[in-house]
Amino acid sequence: MNPRNIGLILTRELKSYFSSLTVYLVIVMFLLMTGYFFYNLLATFSVVSVQAQADPMLARQYQLLNINETVIRPLFGSISIILLLMTPLLTMRLFAEEKKTGTIELLLTFPVNDVDVVLGKYLACVVVILAMILLTATYPVIIVVLGTPELMPILTGYLGLALLGAAAAALGVFTSSTTENQIVSASISYGLLFFFWLISYSVPLVSAGLGQVLAYLSINEHITSLSKGVVDSEDLIYYLCLVALFLFLTLRSLETNRWR
């Protein structure tokens, strides 16, 4: 591993990201969608609050009239799903484009380890995703200005989003390394991400033991507990394992390309 080479590849990838329109479009779409959810959650909360003032029964019913429970937690849920929709669009070009244009031939004959190539590209994508997530910080800032939410769940929620983005990016880097077609790469990414997302829906249908396994594998189970303000090492390990697994698979995939 050579930090200088990782840095060089990371910088080049970032320049390449920001010289194309895609990344701006993805960020704009991401902010529009998350902003829409935020607006609706906040508007609903304020309507219910006003009604609850006039009607104490309703207020009791909505014991949960707590801005953390009714706005922030669902907001993190929505942001995480939209993040899953956006990452394949960011990762699909990383290797597939180089394979299509043939630049991979030069890249792999430069005196650079495959690990540096993979990490450089992966980290560039993670930087874009983190930037994207940070831009949504305006929503909690608005809440903090208007009300008095608990801060801890907000911070851990962001930790969760960052980890989720990192895992989804690793998965996308892997699918991009398996094909020279960006659309194919994105399609496989969506397939795998939705598998990890929907897997928790089978939990009630299977035996308790298997259910636990499926729940552990599910990408959104872990984000839920993090957005409650609980940092459990189990969740951190889950995401880091996904990152390690898919980066490892990417390296193997690059190697099989050489062997074909």
């Binding site: 080049r12 390449s16 244009t101 630049t103």
Partner: peptide
């Protein structure tokens, strides 16, 4: 080996956006 060679592939693949 790669440190000691310069290579021009047939298709001249370059990063178009740079």
């Amino acid at each position: 080996v790669r440190k000691r060679i310069g290579y021009l592939p047939e298709r001249v693949p370059l990063y178009e956006d740079m």
